[in-house]
């Protein structure tokens, strides 16, 4: 799964499909296929803004082309996973698996995303725990200082 989420579109391909998309855009008749091809390249970019743009194009396709829905949902999950928006990626995996519960491609992606989410939540707990410890330390320091002052006052 790591490989699928880290491979990067060759620059010349991205440019090729971008050009095709813009040509059709100029004529105000972008076909579903052209938009999908461009979006698929964008979500494989190494730049997050490209991936975001790809996601927008896929979301737009979702509203316009019911036939390709399966492909769009899958790449929405991939795109979101690539920019570490794991909760969103999870949402798309679940939506897909509702229609095709046995799809191995999506099951492996969902597992990967689930692991990432669990790790993030553990990290969250660790950070919260760390904060509690730090706070405890501060209070302890405060008490110690107060005590010190008391003893100092006695002198």
């Amino acid at each position: 799964m790591e490989e699928l989420l880290s491979e990067v579109v060759p620059q010349q391909d991205l440019e090729k499909f971008e050009k095709k998309y813009h040509q059709e855009l100029d004529q105000q008749s972008v076909s579903h296929r052209t938009q999908f091809e461009y979006a698929w390249c964008l979500v494989r970019s190494s730049y997050a803004p490209d991936i975001q743009k790809g996601i927008l194009l896929l979301e737009d396709l979702m509203t316009r082309d019911a036939d390709g829905k399966r492909d769009y949902i899958y790449y929405l999950a991939i795109g979101n996973a690539r920019i570490k928006q794991y909760s969103l990626a999870m949402k798309f995996c679940k939506a897909f698996l509702q229609i095709e519960p046995n799809n191995q491609q999506v099951i492996s992606l969902e597992q990967y995303v689930k692991d990432k989410l669990e790790k993030e939540s553990l990290k969250g707990i660790a950070v919260a725990g760390g904060a509690a410890l730090a706070l405890g330390g501060l209070i302890g320091l405060g008490i110690a200082l107060a005590k010190n002052r008391k003893t100092a006052n006695k002198d």
């Binding site: 799964m1 699928l4 899958y74 095709e100 046995n102 191995q104 491609q105």
Partner: peptide, 14 residues
Amino acid sequence: MANCPHTIGVEFGT
């Protein structure tokens, strides 16, 4: 893998 659905885009194996 029986009843394998059509692959979307590409799949990876190692």
